[in-house]
Amino acid sequence: MKSDYTEIIAAYKEKPGGIIEAYHALQRAYNYIPEEAVASAAQAFGMSKAEAWGVATFYSYFKVGERGRYIIRICESAPCHIAGADKVVAALEKHLGIKMGETTPDGKFTLEFTECVGQCQATPVITINCKPYEDVTPEGVGEILAKCQ
């Protein structure tokens, strides 16, 4: 059961500068920041709505509005780029039938680009809901996706 977003936000209200921590907590619960939660955060942290939107949209880790249950991020920084990240992208797009930035119609998977996730010892790297997968090959993509149940 998803907890109510006002409750999630309220837990961080007393923390100075806590809005970013609150957004993280929202994403942990929903995988994204519900649009209505931004106004609620603005109120809790004594900011204008515009400011709260400004914060939510500044950070590429945050996404306002729905996303899939499994967020797959593909690192496209130079070390992963030369290790063949583009081929992994192509394989993922083919398997899921969606393009980068899109979510599957069943709401299960979202594909996103990311810059380096700090696991460059085994490139190319993807993360699924923050968990890193290393040395990913186009052939291995199917097996990784199958684990997302």
């Binding site: 100075p16 500068g17 590429s60």
Partner: peptide, 25 residues
């Protein structure tokens, strides 16, 4: 511990401070 949120520029010390304060970095 405070968490960043995927902005490279927040490694710059004054942007990092802005981010801890709950602002755009």
């Amino acid at each position: 511990v405070r968490m960043g949120a995927g902005a490279y520029v927040c490694g710059e010390e004054s942007a990092l401070i802005e981010s801890i304060e709950g602002h755009r970095g």
